[in-house]
Design a protein around this nucleic acid. Structure first.
Lengths: 209, 209
DNA sequence: GTTTGATTAAAACGAACGTATGAATCCCGG
DNA sequence: CCGGGATTCATACGTTCGTTTTAATCAAAC
């Protein structure tokens, strides 16, 4: 089982470094050094740096997607017409859970998500699979039912805003220089702030055209 | 004036490439080639690649900041108690103006802003100056006055959400693979959607603690 | 026309990168 | 004990990077 252990440590190290420094800013040498493995281990276990990234992203995204899916199932089992705030919580909650669940890598997981979404590197855009699309489409349909007055383009705009806020806002703080303003919200508080913020935003009356 | 011309063309090329590929994904060679200049031109005119980036960012950010500042001045000259939606528009509007003003580089400018905000590279975090802090603090104070029930941490959270939505949401689309959903909002429509979305979000009642 | 300072050009440097290779080592069924 | 697949190791390869250097070119002042 020594092999699988090395594999996991490579994934852990890569997740942390990709989050901290981005894909291009992280060298295979830095990853293997942090993992306590040999330089060639990445090539052996994953084939290439890009495929290691894909494995890292999959490991992070999959539980989030599963939780989003399960949350929606739970909601729909309880009521056929969920409220907007409930949809927001079911969608955004898992993103915060993975971030705030307390283990040491949690803070950097949000950075990784952000990096994934914003990194212009081509390798960053090859992981998105049919599962992710399916989850997004299910939420899109439910939001459409809950907000029937919203035109599809505006709903689509708001869905992206939803993702932007959950993904971005803790990151922006965490990897910028110390801010002189009020201290940022953390953990559970941040989650509740986000639900409030986003539920109001999603529920706004349609922009008159 | 030939010298200054090379300088400008380097700035233009760097702005475009940094936006498209990120800082680390852009080589000095690619910049000088696109600018029609010699490889050593970057070193001569800017000292280093990092200082070139700083010059690019300054050139993009400064007019935005000036517009944000002027918009707030205009608002405060008209009324001593601006509404939240007006503050949102004055703050977010310039970010959309620079994006949608029609010239060819506009689409990539938003990507550059996004890259600046999210790139983990250390060089990306050295441009923020006292001017930017001043503008942000002025808006922070006005939002605090317009939303007196909001605790400072929650207000701070919302300010970051404000920036996240304006910066992120058009970019996420523009540099990902084609999406199967409804077509994204563009230009002026996107701006109005954002104002609606963000005004509602900023105006939400405080999260009960 | 020559000198002077500013700019551009061509070439090279050392370092870091991702990847590939072949030998060494480990682990376990026989 | 041993044989063989799985894994780790040290090392090297070829490329690309940012930067530097030195010479060539230009524009204008004297």
């Amino acid at each position: 089982m020594a092999s699988s252990d090395t594999r996991t440590q490579l994934l852990d190290a890569a997740e942390r470094l990709f989050a901290e420094r981005g894909y291009r800013g992280t060298s295979v040498r830095a990853i293997t050094e942090l993992a306590g493995a040999n330089l060639a281990a990445v090539g052996y276990h994953f084939g290439s740096k890009a495929q290691l990234l894909a494995a890292v992203v999959r490991r992070v995204i999959e539980p989030i997607n599963a939780a989003q899916c399960a949350g929606l199932d739970r909601l729909l089992a309880r009521t056929s017409q969920p409220r907007v705030a409930e949809l927001v919580e079911a969608f955004a909650g898992p993103l915060f859970d993975v971030i705030t669940e307390g283990d040491e890598s949690s803070a950097q997981t949000s950075q990784l998500i952000m990096t994934i979404l914003s990194d212009p590197a081509e390798e960053m855009r090859s992981w998105n699979g049919p599962v992710e699309d399916l989850v997004r489409d299910r939420y899109l349909a439910e939001f459409q039912r809950a907000l029937p007055d919203l035109s599809p383009p505006e709903l689509w705009f708001r869905m992206r805003g939803l993702l932007a806020v959950t993904a971005v806002d803790r990151v922006e703080i965490s990897h910028r220089r110390p801010v002189t303003g009020p201290s940022p919200a953390a953990g559970e508080e941040s989650r509740r702030f986000a639900i409030t913020f986003l539920a109001a935003a999603m529920s706004a009356p349609p922009t008159r055209t």
